[in-house]
């Protein structure tokens, strides 16, 4: 009954256009159907959590949203730009969309500050001074301004992931994508990263997050999207998804994830 909710948070006309629209998105890896006719909308300011068993296509889906992976069929529209081969300047779209990876992917040969300044200076053409101020602002926000002069290899995993978040924010993105941001972390470092993301969601950032952290999902999600075998099986508010999942597959998944 609650399988397909309309997007929950809608405000004035400026926000009427959704940040992300997917229509019938299908992707193959050879003969394997990684995504199967996915329809999804993300409104501006919304926090959407994508969960599901491994191999369900969650990561593939989120990687299609900034065209690190290309889809084979259907439409993806991000910030009003349709992602197709004909798109001239994919880099311009990516500048509006921040991404945080499971394995941090900081640039090890650059200091923390340089990591945060590189793209604003080189891809946005912002002055070094302004980029430095922005970088320090966001490094303070993720609570590691004192590490600015260090190299990624000198930081803990949790610190590195917070830097990765700051680095993405320095581009002042409209949308943030998180691809299992805490899966590579030691357990004691998960919280510091999740806290940062909770803060971000609270500020109204549009977020799409693939995660297994169900407590986090319950806390910040406007909507939980459950995927299996490349398809969206159900989507609902976290309250309803966690208390009364509609599908047997979601119930099975929750039994295994929540101990």
């Amino acid at each position: 009954m609650n399988m397909h909710l309309p997007t929950p948070r809608l405000a004035g006309p400026a926000q009427a256009e959704p940040a992300i629209v997917l229509e019938g998105v299908t992707k193959f890896y050879g003969g394997f159907r990684a995504l199967n006719h996915v329809d999804l909308e993300v409104a501006r300011g919304e926090t959407v959590i994508i969960c599901g068993p491994s191999g369900s296509g969650k990561s593939t889906l989120i990687r299609c949203l900034n065209r690190i992976e290309t889809h084979d069929r259907g439409r993806i529209v991000v910030n009003g730009h349709e992602l197709t081969d004909a798109l001239k300047d994919i880099a311009a779209v990516r500048r509006e969309v921040g991404m945080v990876f499971q394995s941090f992917n900081l640039f090890p040969h650059l200091t923390i500050l340089e990591n945060c300044m590189l793209a604003p200076v080189q891809a946005r053409g912002i002055s070094r001074r302004e980029a430095r101020e922005t970088a320090m602002h966001f490094l303070s926000k993720v609570r590691i301004p004192d590490q600015a002069g260090k190299y990624p290899g000198q930081l803990s995993g949790g610190q590195q992931q917070r830097v990765a978040i700051a680095r993405a924010l320095c581009m002042r993105p409209q949308v943030m994508l998180f691809d299992e941001p805490t899966s590579a972390l030691d357990p004691e470092m998960v919280k510091e990263v999740l806290d940062t993301m909770v803060g971000l969601a609270g500020e109204g950032m549009t977020m799409v997050c693939v995660t297994h952290e169900m407590g986090f999902a319950r806390e910040v999600a406007d909507r939980v999207v459950f995927m299996d075998k490349g398809a969206v099986v159900e989507q609902d508010t976290p309250e309803r998804f966690f208390s009364a999942p509609a599908s047997e597959r979601a119930r099975e998944f929750l039994r295994q994830v929540i101990h």
């Binding site: 900034n66 690190i68 880099a91 311009a92 990516r94 500048r95 969309v97 921040g98 991404m99 990876f101 394995s103 941090f104 992917n105 900081l106 640039f107 090890p108 040969h109 590189l118 793209a119 080189q122 891809a123 946005r124 680095r167 993405a168 581009m171």
Partner: peptide, 27 residues
């Protein structure tokens, strides 16, 4: 180099040329 380096640079909106020059080649 890990594929993630190229992906992270792309995700930040760096062009292929700049990705090579600033991220991949120095490493």
């Amino acid at each position: 180099l890990p594929a993630g380096q190229r992906e992270a640079a792309a995700a930040l909106g760096l062009t292929e040329r700049r990705t090579y020059w600033l991220v991949l080649v120095p490493q």
